[in-house]
Design a protein around this nucleic acid. Structure first.
Length: 560
RNA sequence: GCGCCCGUAGCUCAGCCGGAUAGAGCGUUUGACUACGAAUCAAAAGGUCACAGGUUCGAAUCCUGUCGGGCGCGCCA
């Protein structure tokens, strides 16, 4: 449990208080099944327990009867009654709890005392995580699909780090193979046109305008270009491959930085060939007796480990496949000391999951250490029509266009606000029109509003720092505090389910709770004790909103 | 044909290791600036949670099947 998770601590205290009772029911394991939740309706109190209904089956007794006994156990506890205002049975056997005002206020004060550290978990001993995402091949600009995975992956990185995981991010550069060759040839053709050498554009080449731009950059750099002719020499090919790769990567790196997405490592696929690691992986598989020759190719027998069919490691031509180098890459991840490998892949790669897991089995690595998160695709729409995105033809919405048209904050919030498991329609024109009503502004506005109140409090000399006892709290104060106290659990769930969208959802809920509070509870004009308390709540809310926005890489402005 | 994902309000989507009257934003209608920011708040309207069975005290949530949409099923990456 995250420290300072007041709600979780309360659940733990209740579990302890009920241990004897559960044993007497012949179901001691129930203590671990205590779950405490926020009821949907305000009438049902602050928190609710459903343990009596869960227990009814095994105990063989009516839930309301069991609930009575749970309540007795809670009332008999040494510490619990002081924290609770009321504990009641409701409906089919729910136990509804209303917290004491002092307990709420004390929890809020403790959270405020922690400052930006509220909700942050202590370091886990769960091992080192390597989070790999985007991993585009450097043959052109990043597009809207990459933008989604970039926003998602980077948010996940922030959330995992915040919840105490040791996480490293990596961009795998697919700078090897036929696509790179095609790209190099396309660049050579473009370059040839600039220098009066006729080099044909490959049939499936990259004809987008951006290749012209890159060729122009190469041209303007006054480099030592190998001699060119219609038939490209290996030297010429290598030259354009290298130049193209470097320029595109440079571009990617800077646009990702603008998008506030940072990678710890950039890992080159080509390097796996140059340092013999692809070969090494293949050898290891041969030694393990998992690879066999058939039809002139070398196959990995992945079907022995649940894959649909065996997969080729070395083609008839003698060239290793992408799969072979990918195995080498993952083997290296483990050798570098990472315990858990999390890969974010687009849905168009989900067919690849089975063989990769099978490869882990074949190398006697636990496939459980490889977690592949499949992100659904992004459809680019234009006036309600689906637009075909093609890097080759250059018809796509780039990450850069996205940022330029709606801004980093709105783009990141929008991309991460939907579950990664749902296809996302992106209409750039509509996104532009609607950027003004992006929910990100709702959350940011709450933050700015608080900053403004706090500034005025300083001017007017209104003191924060409430005392120990608060008497009653208003409904709006109570809702706001309860929402604030949810942060540790929300963050933990977001990490566990790899679901940054839970963070944005929470941010909206918190902002809403604050706006309601704001409209009903004057802060600066309240009596001194109340003003001090409410100022504390404002500060805490500001901290928590800033935390949630930061967890998805969105700024928290002081004014807007 | 097989596999993965999705189907929830007019639109975009939350909620899914089962919980009480299914939520939010946008859009529509109507109110609130002589209180700290109206980028806000309050209220109304809007639903066979694709469909059909099953599991149980209880199903949007789990299981089976059907329909509809997306993606994949290369000696491409």
């Amino acid at each position: 449990m995250t420290p300072h998770d007041f709600i979780g601590q309360l659940a733990a205290m209740i579990a302890t208080a009920c241990e004897g009772l559960f044993s007497s029911w012949g179901a001691p394991q129930l203590a671990s099944r205590i779950s405490i939740e926020r009821p949907a309706s305000r009438e049902h109190g602050d928190l609710a327990l459903n343990i009596a209904m869960v227990a009814a089956g095994t105990a063989g007794r009516p839930p309301r009867e069991l609930a009575e006994e749970v309540i007795d156990a809670i009332r008999a506890d040494a510490a619990l009654p002081a924290l609770l205002d009321s504990v009641e049975i409701a409906g089919p056997g729910f136990i509804n709890i209303t917290l004491a005002a002092d307990a709420l206020a004390a929890a809020a004060r403790e959270a405020l005392f922690l400052g930006p550290g509220f909700g942050r978990a202590a370091a886990h001993d769960g091992g080192r995580i390597l989070l790999e995402f985007v991993s585009a091949n450097p043959t052109g600009p990043l597009h809207a699909g990459h933008a989604r995975y970039a926003a998602y992956g980077d948010s996940l990185r922030r959330i995992l780090a915040f919840t105490g995981h040791d996480v490293t991010t990596e961009f795998y550069i697919n700078d090897y193979g036929t696509q790179m060759d095609l790209f190099a040839r396309s660049l050579a053709s473009r370059y040839g046109r600039l220098t009066g050498v006729d080099i044909p554009m490959p049939e499936e080449g990259y004809a987008g305008a951006y290749t012209e731009h890159i060729a122009g950059m190469i041209h303007s750099r006054d480099l030592d270009v190998p001699p060119l002719s219609a038939e490209l020499t290996p030297q010429a090919l290598a030259f354009f491959r290298q130049q193209g790769r470097d320029l595109v990567l440079e571009e990617m790196r800077s646009i990702l930085e603008r998008f506030r997405v940072f990678f710890d490592n950039w890992y080159s696929e080509t390097s796996l060939y140059e340092n013999g690691m692809t070969e090494g992986a293949i050898k290891a598989l041969l030694q393990a007796g998992e690879a066999v020759e058939r039809d002139g190719a070398l196959w990995l027998q992945t079907s022995a480990y649940g894959d649909d069919k065996d997969r080729v490691l070395i083609r008839g031509t003698g060239e290793p496949t992408y799969f072979a180098s990918d195995i080498a890459y993952h083997r290296d991840k483990l050798e570098r000391g990472f315990d858990q490998l999390v890969n974010i892949w687009g849905a168009d790669h989900h067919g690849y999951v089975g063989r990769m897991k099978a490869a882990f089995d074949a190398l006697s690595h636990d496939p459980g250490r490889l977690e592949i998160v499949i992100g659904q695709l992004v459809n680019v729409m234009e006036m309600g029509e689906r637009k075909q995105m093609s890097k080759r033809a250059g018809t796509m919405v780039t990450l850069e266009e996205l940022i330029d048209s709606i801004g980093v904050d709105a783009a990141r919030f929008f991309l991460v606000d939907r579950s990664h498991d749902t296809t996302l329609d992106l209409d750039l024109e509509k996104a532009k029109l609607r950027s003004e009503e992006n929910p990100v502004y709702y959350v940011q506005y709450a933050h700015a509003r608080i900053c403004s109140i706090l500034a005025r409090a300083r001017e007017e000399g209104v003191a924060a720092g409430a005392g120990d006892s608060y008497g009653d709290v208003t409904d709006e104060e109570r809702s706001l505090i309860l929402k604030l106290l949810e942060l540790p659990r929300v963050v933990e769930n977001a990490a566990a389910y790899r679901a940054p969208n839970r963070i944005t959802a929470y941010g909206r809920e918190l902002a809403a709770a604050f706006h309601v509070f704001y409209h009903n509870c004057p802060v600066l004009k309240a009596p001194a004790a109340s003003a001090a308390f409410r100022l504390d709540l404002c500060k805490l809310t500001r901290n928590v909103i800033a935390t949630t926005l930061d967890l998805v890489g969105v700024s928290a402005p002081e004014s807007m």
